[in-house]
């Protein structure tokens, strides 16, 4: 038996569960010794927290749902047990719930999970815990030396270009978009970069194989290309561009 449950009577536990359940679902049930005409205040206050946090986290999705946003969140709140003790992290649970849930909105808005993930990515990049960043220099040899990437980024593959056009238009431009949300280390805001397919694939490879040269070889194999001097030249240019944009911070140095 759980340690904490020892001193609490089952009846007290049951009453506490009933109140919590009522706050989640709004389904009225008699709760011993509670004033029925006051209980709804708890349901309202609890749901307001959920509503506010989700509305702030997902402004585009909220607009998409319009009048149905509240009902959508109510369904989420009834069906899902919120896990995170930090409420600012709760929006991720809505994203995961939508991914796993069998809901008609996913057919109605086929881009829904991408949109939620895109909006959540911005929060992750903006708020993510600070990390120690290794020392870098601006020049090096990418085939041999380690590149240091800005650690605050989120790579997302979109089939709807919601990162650069209104939803209405994005639905007509289905394709393959590799997008990175990136924290600007000086302004501390979030910017969005789009990569051509080659570099999007390269980034995906880099996560697993670490070294850029090996990742470039793997990327070429995946895309059925050969790593020609021309491609190597493009990679060099891309690295310089990315250093300018703050996605690559430079070459690792111990000096």
């Amino acid at each position: 038996m759980e340690k904490a449950a020892r001193s609490l009577n089952p009846e007290t536990h049951r009453i506490q569960s009933q109140l919590a359940e009522y706050c989640k679902t709004g389904k009225t049930q008699e709760i011993k010794g509670a004033l029925p005409d006051r209980l709804h205040n708890y349901r309202r206050l609890v749901f307001n927290v959920i509503f506010d946090i989700m509305t702030n986290a997902y402004p585009i999705t909220r607009n998409l749902f319009g009048d149905r946003w509240k009902e959508f969140l109510q369904r989420f709140f009834i069906e899902h047990k919120c896990q995170h003790y930090q409420v600012w992290k709760l929006p991720e649970e809505l994203l995961i719930w939508v991914k796993n849930a069998d809901i008609s909105e996913k057919t109605e808005f086929p881009f829904l999970t991408q949109l939620l993930e895109f909006e959540w990515a911005e929060i992750v990049v903006y708020n993510g815990a600070d990390q120690e960043i290794p020392k870098t220099i601006n020049h090096g040899n990418w085939r041999l030396d380690d590149l240091v990437f800005n650690p605050y980024y989120y790579l997302i593959n979109l089939s709807y270009p919601i990162h650069k056009m209104p939803l209405r238009d994005a639905q007509k431009e289905i394709g393959n978009y590799c997008v990175i949300l990136l924290r600007d280390l000086k302004k501390l805001n979030v910017k969005v970069l789009e990569f051509p397919l080659f570099f999007g694939t390269l980034m995906g490879q880099l996560n697993s194989s670490k070294n850029l040269h090996l990742a470039a070889l793997d990327t070429c194999a995946m895309l059925q290309l050969e790593l020609t001097p021309e491609i190597e030249d493009q990679i060099s240019k891309w690295i310089n561009q990315m250093i300018e944009k703050g996605f690559i911070l430079g070459y690792r140095t111990t000096a």
């Binding site: 609490l8 109140l19 919590a20 706050c23 047990k81």
Partner: peptide, 29 residues
Amino acid sequence: SYSKCDNAHLYDLLPIPFRQDAVNHIVSR
């Protein structure tokens, strides 16, 4: 108060039953 019950956070302050077993439970916590 309590803001989590049966493995679900509610993010608001719910009233605890004013009972002796709740007192003992909370004191040990």
